[in-house]
Amino acid sequence: MSEATAAAPTAATDKDELLRLYTEMLRIRRFEEAAARAYTQGKISGFLHLYIGQEAIAVATADLMKPGDRVVTTYRDHGFAIALGCDPGACMAELYGKKDGLVGGVGGSMHFFAKDKGLWGGYAIVGGHVPVAAGHAFASKYLQDGAVTLCFLGEGAMHIGATHEGMHLAGLWRLPIVFVIENNQYAMGTPLKRQTAVDDLTVRAPAYRMTSDRWVVRDVFETRQRLARAVARARDEQQPALIELLTYRFRGHSMSDPAKYRTKDEVESWKERDPLYRAETALGAEHGMSAEDIEAIDEKVWAEMDGAVEFAESSPLPDPEHRFKYHLVEEGED
């Protein structure tokens, strides 16, 4: 951790840009908090995995994407949906299992798909999406469409076979793909040191002939800048990359996890690195924004997310016939 934390992130000099990215991160956090509240109220069932603490990664990624690029991610997928421009109301309605949900109430929290926004899926079988993401990149190379696939996975996914096979083929065939490990320190309740023999997961990159990079996600600008390098090489040189982002989820693995396996000190130390907190501090300290100005942004974002909840609650249940749809492409269906 020490070497990865050593480089001080570049402070943002452009206030408007920082404000934009701060607001985007805040939208994800408030969406997740609104979802957590609804879950606690018993309005959302199933599994609910929150992205709180990791928002900068989705926001930085969304900024880098060109039309045709794809994000493939895990079941912790709300952040990417919001960052990529999905309507928070549709996202919330999906959590509610409603008709107006992102996928009409068939997928729930763990299975968000929005192809037109570049979200090619939230996948709920750990590691199972890695070869699929490689397949998207395979198609890009085959069709020469110039698109890059960004495949996100948790550090817990580094130990399952599908991940190895997908990365292996991406390296062998030089596919335009960037694999990003969101190392939030715990695979459910198991810390990394009890999962793997090494501390640095990017040591595997040379085995796949990939480039690698690794840093602590403290700063959304730095994260965007360093991700951009990997994306550019994937696009221009068909050079796949393996990136490890050291981050932290401030909530448990899912809503049913009280996260008793970690200390308060540890959580506090990560809160100081929280990109959202740091951006807020910078807006005040470096750009002279008042507490009231920042509060006003928060109120606006909360209003949006309250609206999303309202939309979800008022959306009807899916039609009974909806359960028959989309299992197979039917005659004449596109």
Binding site: P131, A134, G135, Y142, E165, G166
Partner: peptide, 17 residues
């Protein structure tokens, strides 16, 4: 690598192949 190439096939099919 059956998992790998099956998955690549699936991902390629989703992308139009």
């Amino acid at each position: 690598a059956e998992t790998g190439f099956s998955g690549v096939g699936i991902g390629a099919a989703m992308a139009g192949l």
